[in-house]
Nucleic acid binder design. Structure first.
Lengths: 117, 117
DNA sequence: GTATTACATCGACATACGTCAGTGTTATTG
DNA sequence: CAATAACACTGACGTATGTCGATGTAATAC
């Protein structure tokens, strides 16, 4: 997942010259960076990261009522975090009666994971 | 990298009963989540993610003056992003005369990368 | 010395974020 | 029907963020 991009070689600067030439920016990578940054941003909160951890570990679907006591935050705050994860495309939910079951969307983390490795 | 944590099994709720028992929260995972979330947060901006991408690709050290023309932002803004990456422990820099050279700290992304995979 | 270059820091701004108490919505219980 | 439970949404709050122009700092060129 590299940027298709060549950097100008470094060299001693002559008098009154800029140190480097401008480089063309490839739009190819831009949208991918936007997608991955969105995922990373959603994981950039310790509670959300642990939420994803729990959901991934329990490969099935987990009831919100089981998540609430795991964290020292109010229920609306947890609901807010789950919404953020939903908006980032990392998790999805299913209603069953009174309960809401959350699960990690398969391969949602794959692009970022591969770029990181 | 799992959370050491057991979830209460789901079951039909009897009249007037809560749907699940409270669960003990393990502090073991907490600090790891804080570290990984800090890294993820730093990667949660498309420009910073691309900065890391460029620096990783060019395994050596890259002059700031080569990074500026790659992005459509002012130089102080880029400096700000580099500072964020430094504070997150992802990159470090070296001064050489007028130039500053940035590089990715080896293994800085490893913990998050392994957790994601 | 002065001028110029590379980069960081400062101050300001609008926006986004994490958090909560309160409220609303929907489904189940009795 | 009314009461209760699970969860989402609203509005408010202080704080953090991304951005820029202006300024500061240190090194090189003349």
């Amino acid at each position: 997942m590299p940027v298709d991009l060549e950097l100008a070689p470094k060299q001693k600067r002559a008098a009154g010259e800029r140190c480097c030439e401008p480089v063309v920016y490839p739009d190819v990578q831009r949208e991918q960076a936007l997608r991955m940054a969105e995922v990373a941003k959603a994981l950039g909160d310790p509670i959300r990261l642990q939420l994803v951890d729990v959901l991934r570990k329990h490969a099935g679907k987990v009831c919100v009522c089981e998540l609430v006591p795991l964290f020292d935050i109010a229920q609306p705050t947890l609901s807010h975090h789950l919404k953020k994860l939903r908006e980032a495309g990392i998790v999805d939910s299913e209603r069953q009666g009174l309960w809401a079951y959350y699960y990690v969307i398969p391969d949602a983390l794959e692009e970022l994971s591969e770029w990181l490795s």
